[in-house]
């Protein structure tokens, strides 16, 4: 009986410590993964900025970057708030394409001719089960702003590669701001989701 009890205790300890170590390793790998993705993203942006692309080529490159590094399904859903449920599947698909293009265009226009953008990592922390926040400073040489505090919010579902779902500049969440704009446009048009699609299409044409 004693032997069985000992065996049971050993099995319990093995299971408990094994679980504790594996979950802490998985948390650590999620945070490390997320911070290395930010560095990769910055390198990718630097490459684009240093290569002599035409405006259209640059736009396509940024579009590719957004599709690779961002979880656009979550971004699309979160940025339309309660109105996501009222949209048809065609509208959801169209909106997701348009918001991706809008983010790519805005990024290209914000960066302009700036090169040598650097990111200095300060921390990478787990937030709940499914999110990681990577914080640091974006160093923008030869610009009036100089340094910007940035938080990258990642979604880290299961074993999938972490993807960015929000970027905060100086504590201002781009996604929250975008959601408020979108909701204002939809409300102004009597709750019609397609009004938002029309507004983004018009913006992209300008």
């Amino acid at each position: 009986m004693d032997r069985y009890l000992k065996l049971l205790i050993i099995l319990f300890c093995t299971f408990f410590f094994g679980f504790a170590i594996s979950s802490s390793t998985s948390l650590a790998s999620k945070t490390e993964n997320a911070s290395s993705i930010v560095q990769k993203l910055i390198e990718k942006i630097q490459n684009i900025q240093e290569t002599k692309y035409t405006e259209e080529e640059k736009r396509i490159e940024f579009l590719q970057v957004i599709r690779t590094f961002f979880d656009m399904n979550i971004v699309a859903k979160a940025s339309t708030g309660p109105y996501w449920r009222t949209a048809t599947s065609t509208e959801k698909k169209r909106y997701t394409e348009l918001i991706t293009e809008l983010i790519a265009d805005v990024t290209a226009s914000q960066l302009g001719d700036i090169s040598n953008v650097e990111f200095q990592l300060q921390s990478s922390t787990q937030k709940g089960d499914k999110m990681v926040i990577v914080s640091g400073e974006l160093i923008v040489p030869n610009q009036s702003i100089g340094k910007i505090n940035v938080n990258w919010r990642f979604s880290t579902p299961g074993s999938d590669v972490p993807k960015i779902i929000d970027v905060e500049f100086e504590n201002i969440s781009m996604l929250v701001a975008q959601k408020e704009e979108n909701v204002a446009i939809i409300r102004k048009n009597g709750g019609v989701f397609s009004a938002l699609i029309t507004a983004i299409e018009e913006k992209l044409r300008k």
């Binding site: 969440s173 701001a177 408020e180 704009e181």
Partner: peptide, 18 residues
């Protein structure tokens, strides 16, 4: 000013968040 869909709402959102 130039990249937002509704500059008024974006300014308000930025102010409140900050």
């Amino acid at each position: 000013k130039y990249n937002s869909l509704d500059a008024y709402v974006r300014a308000r959102s930025a102010y409140y968040q900050n």
